[in-house]
Amino acid sequence: MRLEGTNLLPASVETVWKTINDPEALRRCTPGLKELKEIGPDTYQATLTIGIAAVKGTYAGTLAITDKRAPTHYKISLDGSGGAGFMKGEGTVDLEPQGDGTTLKWVGDLQIGGLIAGVGQRMLGGVGKMLIGQFFKCLEQHLGGGT
């Protein structure tokens, strides 16, 4: 499924760029992330337990940041597999100054496969968007903003 959004973050482009490249921020804000171990430059081994309410699956895989054009653009990809199936997400992130802050535009393609896709199609799109929203909300708070 294709998802996209725009978030206004209360920090300069440089600060936002640093944050979204910082494994600490990724560790803190990626929903369900249990482990993030650097295995190479901009490449991490990741384990996520992700889902909604009682429905959870554990996925083990890789998170990688590529196509870096500092300080305004990169591509982030996350793929993992587990008992509940597999997931593969790819997104591009673009930063633009907006007044004192930064507009973060993200466009992503999220593929969910296996058990959860065959049973949960009713809510997958909504939940996916919600989890991604959680990520950016967390980033926002991390950057000193917050509602």
Binding site: A54, V55, G83, L115
Partner: peptide, 21 residues
């Protein structure tokens, strides 16, 4: 843990192993 009441939502989720309380 999960509370089991009627089970009409929980048990199918468990049988499909989507939930593993």
């Amino acid at each position: 843990g999960k509370v089991l009441a009627g089970g009409q939502s929980l048990v199918p989720l468990m049988n499909m192993r989507l939930a593993r309380p």
